[in-house]
Amino acid sequence: MSKNFLHKAQNTLLIAALLALFGTLTVSAQGPAPTDDEVNAIAKQLFCPVCESTPLDVCPTEACRQWRELIREMLADGKSEAEIKQYFVEHFGAQVLNEPPNKFASYAVPVAAFLIGAFLLFRGFQMWLKPVKADTALEGGSGLPESEAKPIPQDDYIARLEEEVKKQK
């Protein structure tokens, strides 16, 4: 292990020590070696830094295997999930996260688009529904609502069949 990395570990020594105290409560504390499942649980939330859109937990390359080992080492050192993710972001860039760090920006656009769409549709309904009523009111009932004036062609084969059945009875 590089000393560079150990330095960082020293900074969190206190935390690690605290974690060790509560060893029974935390999965990642120094104790038994972290299991593959614990490693994968974190790797799942990260993407392989060098391959195209491949989550780290399923990436088969040698490089990814090493990163999973890195997660294991960090877990064994008592690092928390957040710390491990932070390390990955600092060293390999934000693209290793499976979600953009700025959650607001990523969700704002689709939500706004949906709201605008819903608003336009709502206004559309208002516009489409009004004229019929207005016309009827203005012309004092002489102009029947369209739906009554002319039957709307239904493709409803069943309805026709049912009508026929009724007639036959």
């Binding site: 292990m1 590089s2 560079n4 060098v50 090493q66 990163w67 080992e69 890195l70 080492e73």
Partner: peptide, 8 residues
């Protein structure tokens, strides 16, 4: 993009 352990 490497891990310190393996780099060392």
């Amino acid at each position: 993009v490497d891990t310190p352990t393996n780099a060392f």
